[in-house]
Amino acid sequence: MSMDVTTIGFTKTSAEDFFGRIRAAGVKRVLDVRLHNTSQLAGFAKSEDLAFFLKTICGAGYVHEPLLAPTEEIMTAFKKEKGDWNVFQNDFLGLMAERKVEDHFKAEEFDGSCLLCSEDKPHHCHRRLVCDYLNGKWGGKLGIRHL
Rank of each mutant, 00 (worst) to 15 (best):
I144D: 02
I144F: 15
D111N: 12
G59K: 04
E119K: 07
S113P: 02
L50F: 09
G61P: 00
G139D: 09
A77T: 04
F44G: 11
W85P: 00
G139M: 10
V30M: 14
R29M: 14
G139Q: 07
G140C: 15
R128P: 00
L54T: 09
F88V: 01
F92V: 01
C114F: 11
F53M: 07
H36N: 07
A97D: 14
G139R: 04
D49R: 09
C125N: 06
H104V: 11
K121H: 12
M75K: 13
C117T: 03
L116F: 04
K80E: 11
D32K: 09
V30F: 11
R128A: 10
G143A: 12
F88L: 12
K79R: 15
F105N: 03
N135W: 03
E98S: 14
L142V: 03
H124P: 00
A69Y: 08
D132M: 10
A77L: 07
E73R: 05
T38R: 11
Q89P: 02
H124Y: 10
K46W: 09
W85G: 03
E98A: 15
H36K: 09
K100H: 14
L31D: 01
W85Q: 06
K46T: 10
L134W: 12
E81D: 08
T38H: 12
A51D: 05
L41K: 12
T38S: 10
G136Y: 00
K28T: 11
G140S: 13
E48F: 08
F53D: 04
